[in-house]
Amino acid sequence: MKTAGALPFTDDPNMLQSPTDVARELTYIAAISEALREEMRRDPNVLLMGEDIAGEFGGAFKVTKGFEAEFGARRVINTPIAELGFVAAATGMALMGLRPVVEMQFADFISSAFDSIVQFAATTHYRWGGAVPWVIRAPADGGLRAGPFHSQNPEAWFVHTPGLKVVAPATPADAKGLLIAAIRDDNPVIYFESKPLYRSLKGHVPPGEYIVPLGKANLARVGADLSIITYGAMLHQALAAAERLAQEGVDAEVLDLRSLKPLDKEAILATARKTGKVLVVHAANKLAGVGAEVAALIAEEAFEWLDAPVQRMGGLDTPIPFSPPLEDAYRPNAEKIYAAARALAAY
């Protein structure tokens, strides 16, 4: 057994072809690289575009380090700083049957391409039947003291946009499986990566073809007393809070949404009906966030099963502050989730 988990990513082909290697662990970021590499090897229509992604440099977070050497400059395209232009160009490529995977240097800069995403790529199929099978990879999320322009979680803008799909993996395995599913999907998919998980989180990642279907949540922890519904980096904060609650005899269930659009309504309603108490948590600001949709869905379709008002926790309604005490006040964490869940359990 090689210690694949210790590598920034694995490019050992033997490793990729060994389905028996069940103990294999990768970092979250290595899992993203692996999904991209495998899909590029499999499908010549898959190509990459973005700022600084080519060459040995391999992007601001090194996700595509070494890719140009393997796949050539034709398939690993360094773009000028022109998000609106190159995302729209990716849409044109996608209409011609290519499958561009576009890297935003930071998710925050996706707003520079907003027009071409929400007005054109998202609506083309509905308006005249043209499929746009691109993926935008958006390194999102904060807690890293990076300030208001490098910490955002802008998923709600896109969940609100008909025609897009939106995913937000929380584990290395889902990072791989959801990215492969996103690349193979015939629709524009925005894939939110959680920067704080990149190198801090390691986990088993199935080698070879591994697909996590879009629109399917994952029951990350089974419990009976209350449900914490979350996604992205907050999954791990919720699980830590659940551990602490367990020591006090409170048995929390934790549902990881994984896909934000489409939402897994079945899974959301099932856990709400099971425990009757729901806390929805995300790092994005709470106001009009994805949690509002989840809470409204439960209110509409699981009202009779509820034993307490649905609770939400998210970032504050401020730009994401830089200074550590301010960002810590802004952002949910295990401690805050624990306190809110305890109060909910006692309701």
Partner: peptide, 17 residues
């Protein structure tokens, strides 16, 4: 350094803000 009396009062990072 994210201080209260920095130009952005700890709101914005490095040379931003």
């Amino acid at each position: 350094l994210g201080r209260a009396d920095g130009v952005s009062r700890g709101r914005d990072a490095n040379l931003h803000g």
